[in-house]
């Protein structure tokens, strides 16, 4: 499954009265795994939104907040990723009474993130980390070739985070992820982008970088601003 590249070429991007990104020229080729880094407010989320919009239906999204429907069960939150593949009538029926096949499919995905036992609990009852994993499961269940994730493992410990990123990499051809942990980024990405005040200040293959280079690129802007300990 090879898609076309995502191209972004823009002088200024933002909201009325506020420019977030400047002088942006970026191409993401199919199969790339891009880690977008930078301190908060540097424009990461805006860039990811842009990538998601350009991907035009070929991307699944893991937004920064888990974006779950708290009243619905974990099952329904994950099943949401495939609403477009069924008729409205079937979706409404599934809302009231899920079919066996759908439950099995969702359970398999939840198993990958270690949440299978929670399948019928209301999403609002879960812990922050669990909610984030539901959000990831939803993207896995979606299965579109591109995954756009905004800090998809921020609430998980490094071991769990690493496992989840591996799952995403296995399922999706192309990854574009905002991450704040340089070690995780270098371990799972093939390319690292560092943003500072709306400009790309570093764009390099991951294998050419050491954690210290990444830390220098955005640690220099404001040491420790990521709030997470960037390992040396």
């Amino acid at each position: 499954m090879t898609g076309t590249a995502i191209r972004i070429d823009a002088a200024e991007i933002g909201y009325p009265g506020r420019t977030v990104l400047r002088d942006l020229a970026l191409t993401i080729a199919p199969g790339e795994r891009v880690a977008v880094m930078g301190r908060s407010g540097s424009g990461k989320t805006t860039l990811l939104d842009l990538v998601y919009a350009r991907a035009a239906g070929r991307a699944a999204l893991v937004p920064q907040q888990a974006a779950l429907v708290r009243r619905l069960s974990v099952f329904h939150n994950v099943h949401m990723a495939r609403l477009d593949r069924h008729s409205t009538l079937f979706n409404l029926k599934t809302l009231v009474r899920p079919g066996r096949r759908e439950v099995a499919a969702v359970r398999a995905v939840l198993d990958e993130v270690g949440l299978a036992p929670e399948i019928f609990r209301p999403a609002g009852d879960l812990s922050g980390g669990q909610q984030q994993r539901v959000s990831v499961a939803r993207a896995l269940h979606d299965g579109r070739p591109i995954l756009v994730g905004d800090e998809p493992v921020s609430a998980l410990d490094p071991v769990q985070g690493s496992a989840v990123l591996a799952r995403l990499a296995a399922r999706h051809e192309t990854l574009v992820l905002a991450l704040h942990d340089p070690a995780l980024a270098l371990a799972h990405a093939t390319r690292v982008l560092v943003l500072d005040r709306g400009r790309i200040v570093l764009d390099a293959p991951a294998r050419s970088l050491a954690p210290a280079d990444v830390a220098a690129a955005y640690g220099a802007a404001e040491p420790g601003a990521s709030g997470h300990d960037p390992r040396p």
Binding site: V62, P63, V69, L72, R82
Partner: peptide
């Protein structure tokens, strides 16, 4: 309704409302 954003493109309006809108409004 943050969940509306993550629905796959092409989801019908009715499905979208009943999954991502109504449950959080019902209270």
């Amino acid at each position: 309704r943050p969940a509306l954003r993550v629905l796959p493109p092409g989801t019908g309006a009715v499905s979208a409302f009943f999954y991502a809108g109504l449950p959080d409004l019902i209270d």
